[in-house]
């Protein structure tokens, strides 16, 4: 395996707070992602895992705290600076969020068309290459409504990788998938790390996925980080919440 080049942390979060009305979702989160590693964020439903990802990409604004995304402080970023940072980040949404009115090929070509100067032939070749990397290059003309959940996620992943991101965010990448498809998606995340040295943050409540992909685990509970370490450390933890989490998942 090639050694990844040493890079600055693509995400650094300090003192992050977020509430919706009376409900506090995040209450003082601090962490930095390690470049070229896969970090899994675990937690029960409703603990703010997806909100954390939306904060990191600037779709939500924090009540307090700072977020540094690929070198850009989001609190002081202009819309143009925020968009420049976003171009270096891929995002796979929980339901893939493919554009309904576009074919699979057009979905993957969308960021290329918007943010690159590739000719239409080069763009098409790149779309083929991206879809081939997720095993979907025979379905270029299909519409999202013609695809299964797993296929949609594969296409969503191809779209997320279109601009060669340094960081990819995955929101529940294996939720609702059969075990085989879930394992295939998890393998794609590992492949991204091993072959392309892409940093990933994976939000999931699936322990099997976390075990397959994670170099590091962060467990959220009641708006705070309850555990931050390796999967082995997580398994050995005597914290009652984590013990219950492991037991429930087993």
């Amino acid at each position: 395996m090639e050694q990844p080049p040493k890079r600055e942390s693509p995400v650094a979060v300090a003192g992050l707070h977020k509430s919706f009305g009376e409900q506090t979702v995040l209450a003082g989160i601090n962490f930095e992602l390690e470049s070229g590693k896969v970090t899994c964020v675990l937690g029960r439903s409703g603990t703010g895992k997806s909100v954390l990802l939306k904060l990191l990409i600037g779709l939500e604004s924090p009540d307090e705290g700072s977020i540094r995304l690929v070198g850009q402080d989001l609190s002081s970023a202009s819309p143009e600076q925020l968009n420049e940072a976003r171009k270096k980040v891929g995002f796979l949404f929980q339901q893939a969020a493919l554009y309904d009115s576009m074919s699979i090929g057009e979905n993957v070509a969308f960021p290329l068309h918007r943010h690159t100067t590739l000719s239409s032939d080069d763009r098409l070749a790149r779309v083929h290459q991206l879809l081939a990397s997720v095993g979907m290059d025979r379905d270029l003309e299909k519409m999202p409504s013609d695809l299964s959940g797993g296929m949609r996620k594969r296409v969503g992943l191809a779209r997320a990788l279109a601009l060669d991101p340094v960081l990819v965010m995955f929101d529940e990448p294996t939720a609702g998938l059969d075990p085989i498809t879930a394992a295939e998606i998890a393998d794609l995340i590992v492949e991204l790390r091993d072959k392309h040295h892409v940093t990933s943050i994976v939000v999931t409540h699936n322990l099997r996925t976390a075990k397959t992909v994670a170099d590091r685990l962060i467990v959220l509970n009641r708006g705070k980080i309850l555990f931050d370490g390796t999967f082995d450390g997580f398994n050995r933890s005597d914290n009652p919440f984590i013990a219950e989490f492991v037991t429930d998942a087993a």
Partner: peptide
Amino acid sequence: TEQIDAMEASA
């Protein structure tokens, strides 16, 4: 279906 979020996330 988060398509608008996806658009925003892709700059």
